[in-house]
Design a protein around this nucleic acid. Structure first.
Lengths: 119, 119
DNA sequence: TCTATATATGAACAATTATTCATATGTTGA
DNA sequence: TCAACATATGAATAATTGTTCATATATAGA
């Protein structure tokens, strides 16, 4: 049982002051949840591919589908998720909708991730 | 069928040169996959909480479990994932294992994520 | 070596999620 | 208004993943 474990542990291992200090500085639950939700959006290779493509050029859904060799529906679903996370924006031009990056955090975040992997 | 859609689309919408240009600059599949895998690690609120806690202080597994109010097994499983992604490192001291952040990319990435959300 | 404690890990289950298919909505030109 | 095309979206399915439980491994002290 989780509670027992914690109580048992407390007698031998827990560093009380350290835990208190840490808990004070911890962002609130909602913020932590939102941050995780944001990174979840980056945590899919289709979406990463879409973002990388948009680093180079604004593109319509059809172009994206062709470039990434996926069907239109799959791309649209992923674009919706990216749009909800405010990572991309869409601009309609006639029948087409052109997508582009919403802001520079996207680049920074992905660049940092890439750096981490390559180190 | 995906191919038909693409072919049909090609006649009316595709921007050929743009797609070629984009494809040249795209990192290879493995790298894109690895980047997504890394962000997947950030995409869970338990792991984000662990990382935030470690921003403040090195802690043993038991402290982490207590701080985050979760059982030891769940924390160990998540620490394993964080360790595999080289986001944290463990250092044994007697019966305890103390975990801390592996490098500064972790902070930068999470800070950027937080900024994006708060804008 | 035996016991107690801390951590790690495999298997199972529940929950989440990416893709596909079918279809709806929005836009243009006739 | 109708036909053709581009995009969006709901439902279903398959795959992935976080947590729990049970148990294994590692360490320290008697």
């Amino acid at each position: 049982m989780a509670i027992e474990e914690i109580e048992r542990c407390e007698d031998f291992c827990i560093h009380e002051e350290r835990i208190k200090k840490v808990n004070e500085k911890l962002p609130d639950e909602n913020e932590l949840y939102d941050i995780a939700e944001l990174f979840k959006v980056f945590g899919d290779s289709t979406r990463i591919r879409i973002l990388y493509v948009l680093f180079e050029s604004e593109l319509c859904v059809c172009d994206l589908a062709q470039t990434l060799n996926m069907n239109q529906s799959a791309i649209s679903h992923q674009l919706k998720i990216l749009k909800q996370a405010k990572l991309v924006t869409g601009r309609r031009e006639g029948k087409s909708v052109f997508y582009s990056l919403a802001d520079d955090h996207v680049r920074t975040i992905i660049d940092q991730g890439r750096e981490h992997i390559e180190e």
